[in-house]
Design a protein around this nucleic acid. Structure first.
Lengths: 135, 135
DNA sequence: CGTAATCTACGAAGCCTTTCGTGCCTTCGG
DNA sequence: CCGAAGGCACGAAAGGCTTCGTAGATTACG
């Protein structure tokens, strides 16, 4: 009881491992299987065909696009990191924070306390901007 | 190559469906299979034994505890909602926000803009408190 | 008491993820 | 031209998640 097929509008959400691949693509930009494999393999020993399969599957799901004009296909994330971030964030908000963004923010800030003054200032800026828009 | 068994210290993280069960337990407090099933079933048609199996599995994983003193066992979440929230939040931060809490906060606030002035005020308070601690 | 209702424990099917191995092309160096 | 290297597509195994069906006990009640 799920999933839109084939059409490009809705993207299925990445699995944990697929997220790993996306992270590599975000960092490297368009990359070949070899590139991705080397990146993954550096972090944890992994077979070449494993990387290949991931890219293929993700292509099937529409998570990446690929350029087949060269022998070694070149893959490219179809979602920017920012898009993935906001998608997964609202997912978390809906799933665990009763839909309340502020609860998430409070929990994030309160819990970790590993936030620098500069970052806090940035957040304040954002708050000001929101207040501005607010009527 | 994972998972600590049996001992109570480390909790495996809940799957999506398990989260649904936990949400029910957080809302109802200690509850029987019947209670949980009714809650789940209200949202989406589901078999009784499905709920039962979830609770059993979750008990095996240490996600819930159970009181077997009555015929209908009574289950209880082993994690408070707040704990789950902060656990899953830091997971998201590590996984998608390069470990930066502030990036998450900015994305959450910027993306949805479904935050009331009261909530913004609450966040400001939290910021002040953090500044206070910050020497 | 006997039957119906409740409950738990299993087991198993179906689908998704993750990980590779093989087979079959294509390209490149000598 | 030939063999080795590099690449892609498949297929398949192992394990996890989700969903139930069935079986066997226990309890409630007319």
């Amino acid at each position: 009881m799920n999933v839109e097929r084939a059409k490009s509008t809705r993207l299925t959400r990445p699995t944990p491992s697929e997220l790993g691949v996306l992270r590599v693509l975000w960092r490297l930009g368009p990359a070949t299987v070899r590139d991705v494999h080397e990146a993954l393999n550096a972090r944890e020993p992994t077979g070449y065909t494993t990387a290949l399969k991931f890219l293929q599957i993700m292509h099937g799901k529409g998570l990446v696009e690929r350029d087949e004009s060269r022998r070694a296909h070149v893959y490219k994330a179809r979602l920017t990191q920012a898009q993935a971030q906001s998608q997964m964030t609202s997912q978390l908000v809906d799933g665990v924070f009763d839909g309340s963004t502020s609860k998430l923010v409070l929990s994030a800030l309160g819990g970790s306390s590993r936030t620098t003054p500069e970052e806090l200032a940035q957040i304040r800026e954002m708050l000001d901007r929101l207040d501005g828009v607010e009527k």
